[in-house]
Design a protein around this nucleic acid. Sequence first.
DNA 1: AATGAATGAGGGTTCATTCAT
DNA 2: CATGAATGAACCCTCATTCAT
Lengths: 222, 222, 222, 222
Amino acid sequence: MSIHSNYGIICSLMIAATATARRTASREKRRHQLIDATMKCIARKGMGSTTLGDVAREAGLSQGIVNLHFESKDNLLKETLASLANEYREQFDKTLHRSGPRPADKLLALLELDFRPSICDRRKLAVWFAFWGEVKSRPTYRRMCDESDRYYDSVIEGLCAELIAEGKYKNIDAMTAADALSSMTNGLWQACLISPQTWDRRKATNAVMSYLRSVFPRHYKQ
Amino acid sequence: MSIHSNYGIICSLMIAATATARRTASREKRRHQLIDATMKCIARKGMGSTTLGDVAREAGLSQGIVNLHFESKDNLLKETLASLANEYREQFDKTLHRSGPRPADKLLALLELDFRPSICDRRKLAVWFAFWGEVKSRPTYRRMCDESDRYYDSVIEGLCAELIAEGKYKNIDAMTAADALSSMTNGLWQACLISPQTWDRRKATNAVMSYLRSVFPRHYKQ
Amino acid sequence: MSIHSNYGIICSLMIAATATARRTASREKRRHQLIDATMKCIARKGMGSTTLGDVAREAGLSQGIVNLHFESKDNLLKETLASLANEYREQFDKTLHRSGPRPADKLLALLELDFRPSICDRRKLAVWFAFWGEVKSRPTYRRMCDESDRYYDSVIEGLCAELIAEGKYKNIDAMTAADALSSMTNGLWQACLISPQTWDRRKATNAVMSYLRSVFPRHYKQ
Amino acid sequence: MSIHSNYGIICSLMIAATATARRTASREKRRHQLIDATMKCIARKGMGSTTLGDVAREAGLSQGIVNLHFESKDNLLKETLASLANEYREQFDKTLHRSGPRPADKLLALLELDFRPSICDRRKLAVWFAFWGEVKSRPTYRRMCDESDRYYDSVIEGLCAELIAEGKYKNIDAMTAADALSSMTNGLWQACLISPQTWDRRKATNAVMSYLRSVFPRHYKQ
DNA sequence: AATGAATGAGGGTTCATTCAT
DNA sequence: CATGAATGAACCCTCATTCAT
């Protein structure tokens, strides 16, 4: 075998690799495209009224496409929730690691994240609430949400613990502070969904800050 | 005809009479019965999977009964939400008027109400969240929820304003405090729904109290 | 309670009974009507190409009717086979008990039954063969067919045994004769299905008679 | 580029070469491979539940392969039946020509052929019956089966005629004997399919032999 | 020649709604 | 009022077929 044929082989291999890569990439891309369309539909029509036909149409593809890539509607919804949760987690982790270095800064950054437009977007919140609305009857959804929540709570609680240690705060424990802060975020999202006219980011931030300032006064000044 | 056949007839008659009595139960009673069955079904199977057949079966009645009393499924759901909202409002108002007389006591009573078993019951919360999950795509639901929320917020805000005036608190305004407290309640309900294992009433109360104590220290002592 | 009211009650009861009876009867009637339509469709289009829509249309009813009465297509098919088997069995038993009294007459009557127009009808045979075609992949069908076959075989074998005892035939045993006769019937039905042009009842009867005459010559004369 | 990468390339090439060889397998071979896979699928899942995807998977090939080689599913099935019929005919003709020389031996050899494992195999019978089940609604299938049957019947009838002439049998005509024998074979196959537990080759052979012996006693002794 | 992603028609099934009783 | 059989639209899903690679 000469070097020339070797060259040919290498090219073939590269093309094959690219083709495979492209096919594979395209598969992931399709899935993402469909999940995206699903979220749009859920936000617009609600979960119960979203049909696979709607999703396919939204994605500009054909009827059978969802079952081809997700096997069933149920699975599509599960993967949609997973994708949503994953997206949040990525932002959360990125924020956690890039902010700081002081725990007070990290905590503030994480709380502010929740009201950034990319997260606190009514369309996206509608999808979250659609899933939460099914949590009781779908153990899988509950488990997925629960798992994420525990992680976030533990991070928040850890930061609160550091603040308490640093500030020698006597009247508060880390877990209670974390519970209060986490629940406020969720409740404020709900307000954003239900009362968008009266809701605004500043109000939400004020509510959270009012807690931080009065509980951790040495870290968050007026 | 012998006495025996008479006996059988009389029994039949009594059964028939009972059935008739049941059948002629007042319109309102039947509607309530169906709404109740609806909530049970939503809590158990989720809103998307609840059929009119399920509701009728749960109520022990026949297939067409819901359309007879509510015209359509859509209407049944709207009335179910209205009933749920009404029930809460009644408890809220009763609590507001019976507690007191000081605003600090009233505020505390209202916040504690939210974690009483009759309100903070996972089955009932499941129904609430089911409706919130459809809020974005069903303007009617949103309007109904929004309306109630505004009322509660205004009451809470009024009480906070009284506390602020009484306590001469400088670093907080009534609206912010009301926002913080209301959103915490909603967020804690969500925790109850999603993480029932780690959730308990004391934790929830602690979270709320931690806010009251640090923001209104002169009213709520450690 | 006077006799008059009693009279009214009795009338009501009778009406109720009639109504119930009619409802119940109508249910069975509907099922039979649908099974009948199913057989017609299978005979005309084949089992694989028969849709529930076809069956409903054939019965002059609406799309959802089959699932209302049979839960699933699978169940409809099973019940169709059961009905077909039942119909045959009734004819078989009737023939068995009405013919005779001698075993030779009974055996002949049973074998002739298989080629009577009501049984050996190409449309009906098509349905039988449609089910036999699925026997390998559907254990339920196999079991149902097997069960019936055993019963018929045992009756035929019993009659052959009586003939053998009566005629003191040396060269044949009852089981072999029964196997030969039963299998001939099935094979001749197949010929009727596949080669209707060359098939006729006389030919079929001749084939069976040729066996009877040569194996049981003292019972069946030339 | 090191020798190691070369090694990898060469291996890839060899795999590719094998794949190519497989891909360029003669058209006929591929068709046969697919027909074989079709029979396996029909035997396992039934004709109605066999999809082109199943066939392709069974053959270890790709989704679109059947349409490439057979244009349509319908055509694949027709060719499968043709192949099945052809296979039987080859064995029949081989047996006919190799056995003998006396007609009694030929007839016996042909009848015994039908119960040899290579023919009377439940998997293969399942396929036969699957096609017979569609005979009524698919004229093409009927015609194909009919054509073959006529040929076999004519051969059997011819042999019977020779026996009758040789043995000077008075009470039987060739056509009737051929009908009886052919139908017995088919009926015994059905027994093999439906009641495999109680069926065995000896029983089947006995049934056929009981006919031959009593109808052609001078050729087939006890 | 072969692949496998994509299509879209059509199947079984569910269910809100209607209506005769 | 109440029933429950019946309807038929619309859903999810399957699968033969096509086509770019």
